[in-house]
Nucleic acid binder design. Structure first.
Lengths: 199, 199
DNA sequence: TGATTTGTTCTCCACTTGTTCTCTATTCTA
DNA sequence: TAGAATAGAGAACAAGTGGAGAACAAATCA
């Protein structure tokens, strides 16, 4: 969202004046800082900044003017590793990875690191990073992150048939797995892949 | 769109005087800066610059004159496609691709799109994008972009032996190629890979 | 619990700012 | 030299902006 001049100015003043180690300022204090007399006026500006993603919305709380940590918005969350047989190892929150727009889906996305070779014939190798668009439905043939029996997460090509769901690995030494539909929860669809050939 | 003399002059003055760390100037301020007395006069010039893509359109808002950020610095150059058998098809200049830092080498890098399946066993598929670090030397086992006889470029795993250079494809239906060292020019080393599973 | 603080919503109004005109002067061009 | 293109001045306009302040509701405090 584009900011007007005043909004930019106010954002700059906020950045320069808000000490992150203290309590966030109240509207009243901010008004004084900005030379405003009306909280209502300030509120409009703050809303604009919230809309621009520069200020955290305060959901009902008081003393809520907090600046969004710059950079917190960059990239998409990196959630951990995925391997057949285990649930996604959650990584301590807040880790993010910068991903080219071209690899993103339309909705919210996250990144997992692939563990194992079950999809090697699809060119998905151990250690690759996959970009997953979070969604609960998939089309036949999509490669999805599926949670089975609420226990283990796996990356497989999906085939949905009446009364059963088939998960196809892409590895000659492994065979397809067949489940009841209610056993399988789709957690996202593969949208992109990243691999680093580090020096 | 072509710019008149005055428009070029004004654009240059804008570039030189607009400090991006300050607020974008209003028409009024710009008039003063340019020695104009009428906003109307300025407006015509700004419109011309907007048409030329040099200034952000204002979309009815009051947000001051902003120059279009030359995004030329973002991302790394996308040079075109690479396939065994043909030189790199140069793509019209200036195309760039945003790439995660993690996939970049230390030196200058560029992106190529892979054409063909000669490296399929390495998980490099037709249509994948590869990030190449531009360098003229490689270590044995590196996957490199090699220019052969100054004619054709190809992506292969390299093996350098006294008096000969072997380029290994990763495809059971293809066999290694052996060249004289002077036939082969290394143009870069594979550092990263991007694949999009578009919807 | 009642009083107060604090964020939110609303209306109202002044005025800034970008836009659109018309008119004129100057320069370039066929 | 006539005509076109370019530049600028200035008037008039409308929409968006920025601010004041009242009224309200929820959170917090006493």
């Amino acid at each position: 969202m584009k900011l007007t001049r005043r909004q930019q100015e106010i954002y700059r003043i906020l950045r320069d004046n808000i000490d992150h180690h203290q309590l966030p300022p109240t509207y009243e204090e901010l008004c004084r800082m900005l030379g405003l007399k009306s909280r209502g006026s300030l509120h409009k500006h703050i809303q604009a900044l919230v809309g621009a993603g520069l200020v955290e919305p305060m959901e009902g709380l008081k003393r809520g003017i907090r600046l969004v940590e710059p950079g917190a918005d960059e990239g998409i969350p990196y959630l951990g590793r995925i391997a057949a047989g285990r649930p996604i190892e959650a990584v301590g929150q807040a880790e993010r990875m910068q991903v080219p727009d071209a690899l993103l889906g339309r909705g919210p996305c996250y990144v997992l690191q692939v563990s194992g070779d079950s999809m090697i014939d699809e060119g998905i190798h151990d250690g690759d990073y996959v970009v997953i668009e979070a969604q609960v439905q998939a089309r036949d043939g999509d490669i999805v992150v599926a949670l089975i029996d609420n226990e283990e997460a796996t990356l497989k090509r999906i085939e949905q048939r009446p009364g059963k769901v088939i998960l196809h690995p892409a590895n000659p030494s492994m065979s397809a797995m067949i489940y009841e539909p209610q056993q399988v929860r789709i957690q996202g669809v593969l949208r992109g892949l990243l691999r680093s050939y580090a020096k």
